[in-house]
Design a binder for these strands. Structure first.
Lengths: 249, 249
DNA sequence: AAATGCTTGCCCAGAAATGGGCATAGGCGA
DNA sequence: TCGCCTATGCCCATTTCTGGGCAAGCATTT
């Protein structure tokens, strides 16, 4: 690997950060040494507390707009990060997600605010946390192509470091469903109606309705879609469990 | 890193595989050199063709059961792979997903069929493909602890190699939704009814129904849950877009 | 032995979703 | 200008889901 020693040195610094300030300093240093202009490290823990961390040195203009208008909820980069397990260049986001008009507009505003292209390393621990570490350059600058591998590694380390700092997350007490409830949710996620599920499982439709009812109660949700999403998010069912049923290609 | 040269050598071999047979040979070699007994490389492309690849040297007994009963659809290891972006030991799957009774039973059958503990490296490119590379040992053997890092790297390389062999998938022509349709799906995924969405967007409930109807048509699905799952899978919406609405902690 | 939890089954009324049709208006490109 | 797409709105009938209550059988735990 090129720049092996530099990567090693910066990795040490990031890993060794015991406080947020040190993490900021280490990342700022790494950003500059790699040839980027800005960085942004975001970490969100999904749990009872929902602790989160955001460390960055973006230009004030962009930071104010982003935070002020709560653009995070619509940020295509963040959305693309949920579609990739490897680092990606912002210019390639349309490989991961379709860009809507609003998305392009957002990227334009970012450019006008001093943030051009970038490289984002996403990491997800569904049900526990998700984080991303982005390295960006100014509008007309080019990404340091020979540093993307280093960025990938350092970004991942930074996310791990953030996770350490924010505290290890005990496994959230999940409203685990019973076996039968889970089966009903699974078949429901496969697009079956209560009646069909009843036929499949060899029980009454009413009983299926009952299982789904109990499952909704446990998650305190009021509709089947939410129930499926909860089960999906908690890992009770997986995309691979259901993919073939609604994408019959 | 320990075993740096071995890793490097094996990586070369895996990367250089130009045909499936060579990939098999390279992986079999790597498996043995690292101290594992079996390997399994699975790669699924979620495209129009849905090409897939499965290369392994599992014991016949287990392979027959797994394939014969189509256990892949219910495999907890596979499900855990959707919950982790790093390699994980099978004994730790309950850190990622809750194990149901059926899951434990499946793992027991595997053990009886000659497959004990293992280490799985998952990689996902949602909307495009997903793959996993597992290295396993026999029932009573212990995983070669000092080789897990190497396995992580080699597994990732093997998956990349499989992807090369199977052909890169150009962006699947997805039934992209219009902006309004996507908004309706998003709010729907947040648990809102058509009426509520109408209030939020400032349009008639009937119009929301219409948008959702058109969206279902595009995905050729018949219920709202499926529509949400499709949008989720295609990256039109993300978990973080909806999490706060149904997990109000 | 009692309590608890899981599974199964049924009833009802109201809410929501689904599928089909129809229609107007605006934008955008051929 | 015409055609296509999108957004908006409304109607209807039917299906499905949701929330409420009730209860029996069984296994496990206390």
């Amino acid at each position: 690997m090129k720049h092996f020693h530099l990567t090693e040195e910066l990795a040490q610094e990031i890993t060794g950060a015991g406080r947020v300030e040190q993490l900021f300093a280490a990342l700022a240093n790494a950003t500059g040494r790699m040839g980027f202009d800005h960085f942004a490290l975001a970490f969100d823990r999904r749990g009872n507390d929902g602790a989160s961390m955001l460390v960055h040195n973006y230009p004030d203009a962009w930071a104010k707009i982003y935070v002020g208008f709560d653009l995070g909820a619509a940020d295509p980069i963040r959305r693309a990060g949920e579609r990739s397990v490897t680092g990606f260049q912002w210019r390639d986001v349309n490989r991961y997600i379709p860009l809507s008009r609003g998305d392009r507009q957002l990227l334009n505003v970012a450019r006008e605010s001093g943030v051009g292209d970038g490289f984002t390393v996403p990491r997800h621990l569904p049900g526990e946390a998700s984080g991303s570490c982005s390295f960006a350059v100014s509008p007309r600058a080019a990404l340091p192509a020979d540093m993307l591998h280093a960025a990938e590694i350092l970004g991942a380390i930074a996310i791990a470091s953030a996770r350490e700092l924010i505290g290890s997350s005990p496994l959230r007490p999940r409203p685990v469903l019973t076996e039968r409830q889970r089966e009903c949710v699974l078949w429901s996620a496969r697009g079956k109606t209560a009646g069909e599920i009843g036929d499949i499982l060899g029980i009454s439709e009413e009983t299926v309705v009952r299982h789904l009812k109990m499952a909704r109660d446990r998650y305190s949700v009021h509709c089947r879609s939410m129930l499926i999403l909860c089960a999906l998010f908690d890992g009770l069912i997986g995309f691979s469990d259901i993919y073939d049923w609604w994408r019959p290609n």
